[in-house]
Write a protein that binds this DNA or RNA. Structure first.
Length: 304
DNA sequence: TGGAAGCCTGGTGT
DNA sequence: AACACCAGGCTTC
């Protein structure tokens, strides 16, 4: 925090964070492009985040600074800074990861092509709900669902159309299934309502889940109705400090078949287990690069 | 224990 | 423009 400019916070990252890939690439669903920056809510405050290079341009491998301001224009505190650094995963030793996988025929070039893709550390409950909503869905629709929930039942923290805090589990538990269905969640409304009830009653306690081993945490989340392995792994990786998680969806499975000769018939579970063993404690970073590369290549905007 | 069907409905492509 | 068909899974059978 710069005492001369209390409304603005500067965060440095090396390499520069690719905001588009990181904030709007399928990890988080409540960031909105606003000119050169992205706007979204972290904790109970709405922020604008912008990189030094124009959004959309390839991130550079050099260190760069991000500029963050709160939409309420009040001063930013060291607490804001600590929270945002945590959210953006700025303490992660990215260089070590990049070095470790530089020689990998698939991941190496992907890291070179998108050096600024990072893994976020999101709010546990919001992230869990978002991935429950991801079942047989797509990114635009997931965004629509999650934001509809926030707008309908969350507290407003800014003047913008998306400046809402995601509602707590107890709040969504009292809302119930039918209203969620009316927001367009479809069959996922039951999943979210039942998860909200369970979490609201402390079964399980999400902070306790985060403190568990990966295996125990996975088991705990999968006991929730509507949460299978893919959804649980996403939540664990993106919100529960479990970077060894490796969510396998059709995109990632296809990429593994293509690059690592995984047999097509191998189940999702076995594929995930193979990948965790193969890629180790940073598996989710590999996972994100596989996903990102596969998805963008399919769209014809490959950088490798 | 594995595998296939059904679920809601907005996106996406034709 | 209208209309299939599909989609970043889950539960159930």
């Amino acid at each position: 925090v710069d005492p001369e400019r209390p409304g603005v916070l500067t965060l440095s990252a090396s390499p520069a964070i690719d905001l588009e890939a990181t904030l709007d690439g399928g990890q988080a669903f409540r960031w909105w492009r606003e000119g050169e920056s992205y706007r979204g809510v972290v904790g109970r405050r709405a922020y604008r985040v912008s990189g030094r290079s124009p959004a959309g341009a390839p991130a550079t491998t050099e260190a760069s600074e991000m500029v963050v301001e709160a939409v309420d224009d009040w001063p930013l505190t060291p607490r804001d800074e600590a929270m945002l650094r945590r959210y953006l995963g700025l303490d992660y030793d990215f260089a070590a990861f990049a070095a470790r996988f530089a020689g990998d025929p698939c991941i190496g070039p992907a890291i070179t092509g998108w050096p600024g893709l990072r893994v976020l550390r999101q709010d546990r409950w919001e992230c869990l709900v978002a991935f429950i909503c991801s079942s047989t869905s797509n990114i635009p629709r997931i965004k629509q669902n999650v934001n509809a929930i926030a707008v309908a039942y969350g507290d407003r923290v800014g003047p913008g159309p998306h400046d809402f805090v995601f509602p707590s589990a107890p709040r969504l538990a009292e809302v119930g299934e039918a209203p969620l269905r009316e927001l367009g969640l479809g069959f996922r409304a039951r999943f979210v309502a039942r998860a909200a009830q369970a979490i609201a009653s402390g079964q399980p306690d999400l902070e306790a889940v985060a403190a568990m081993s990966y295996e125990q945490a996975l088991e705990s989340l999968m006991r929730l109705y509507g949460v299978g392995m893919k959804v649980a792994d996403c939540a664990l990786a993106f919100a529960f400090d479990k970077p060894q998680a490796f969510p396998v969806d059709r995109w990632v499975k296809r990429a593994l078949e293509e690059w690592y000769r995984i047999p097509e018939k191998l189940s999702m579970e076995r594929t995930a287990a193979w990948a965790r063993a193969r890629f180790g404690p940073d598996a989710v970073y590999v996972n994100q690069y596989l996903f990102h590369r596969q998805r963008l290549t399919a769209r014809g905007v490959s950088r490798v």
